[in-house]
Write a protein that binds this DNA or RNA. Structure first.
Length: 265
DNA sequence: AATATTGTTCAGCA
DNA sequence: GTGCTGAACAATAT
């Protein structure tokens, strides 16, 4: 699940549930999830504090709990947040649980343990240290900037969009959706795209991600002309008379329409 | 039972 | 050194 729109939805969820509640303790149920710091130091730093504000950069979420101190959840391939009170509401793979003094808890659920919970001094500092590119939904990520980045990229365009060092936020699912809307084949070489095509991809990128956030990431609420609700091999293309195909691109399975997304030679 | 999976990192290669 | 690709990682579903 967790690409940019998913993380944005989780961030808003945290904002309306766990913000400004006093933290009583932190339960670390799986140490794989922690980055460098220990469970003990996480507990010591957070006890008695409140989550004060949230930010997001690409697929990373930032939760402020002190001056120059942010919790940084990252979900990996699976995961979400859950705020609850009763034990029986607890989710199956709650790896880190924040207990609040009001009796509620916030769980960082992460089935496959590829997610991480880190601590940073700030968004900028964390982004530089971890080489995370500009967030694609920021206002200053405009067509000029996108063109500049794409000009430097080689290889298949789907991978270029998914390279978090160049720009952050787009993953496997949404790169498919973006290229589907732009009518570009996922395996097109980035260096072969003309200005018009780059512009088309840029437009699609902004629209698709915004729409997904609006739809709260529910495929059923996405426009019916989108690929997402019908992302399976052999399905009829919602845009034209073509059929949906799938194939491996740089090791990831991508879906596209065999008719209106033509491969560049 | 082998194979797939929404992310990131790193070895291998050009 | 740089940049791209594919395997590995973990746990579960089909």
């Amino acid at each position: 699940m967790p690409e940019l729109p998913d993380v944005e939805v989780f961030r808003k969820y945290l904002n309306r549930t766990a913000l400004n509640k006093k933290i009583d303790k932190v339960e670390v149920r799986d140490n794989d999830i922690l980055s460098d710091h220990s469970a003990r130091s996480l507990q010591m730093q957070l006890k008695g504090k409140k989550f004060k504000a949230t930010k997001r950069r690409g697929k990373y979420m930032f939760v402020k709990f002190d001056k120059n101190a942010w919790l940084v959840p990252h979900f990996g391939m699976t995961g979400f947040l859950k705020y609850y009170k009763d034990e029986d509401k607890e989710t199956e793979h709650a790896r880190v649980v924040f207990d609040f003094t009001n009796g509620y808890k916030l769980a960082f659920d992460n089935q496959r343990k590829l997610g991480k919970v880190d601590i940073a001094k700030g968004v900028q500092e964390f982004a530089e240290k971890n080489d995370i590119g500009p967030d694609v939904l920021e206002d200053d990520f405009d067509l000029g900037k996108f063109k500049e980045i794409m000009d430097k990229k080689r290889g298949i365009v789907k991978s270029a969009l998914m390279d978090q060092k160049s720009m952050s936020g787009v993953g496997n699912i949404y790169s498919d959706e973006i290229l589907f809307r732009a009518g570009i084949h996922p395996a097109s070489k980035t260096e072969r795209l003309d200005n018009k095509q780059v512009k088309k991809i840029f437009r699609a990128l902004k629209t698709v991600l915004k729409k997904a956030i609006e739809a709260e990431v529910d495929p059923q609420k996405m426009p019916s002309s989108y690929l997402l609700p019908v992302r399976e091999e052999g399905h009829k293309c919602p845009e034209c008379s073509g059929k949906i195909k799938s194939s491996k691109f740089s090791g990831r399975t991508g879906y596209y329409c065999g008719k209106h997304q033509k491969q560049l030679s």
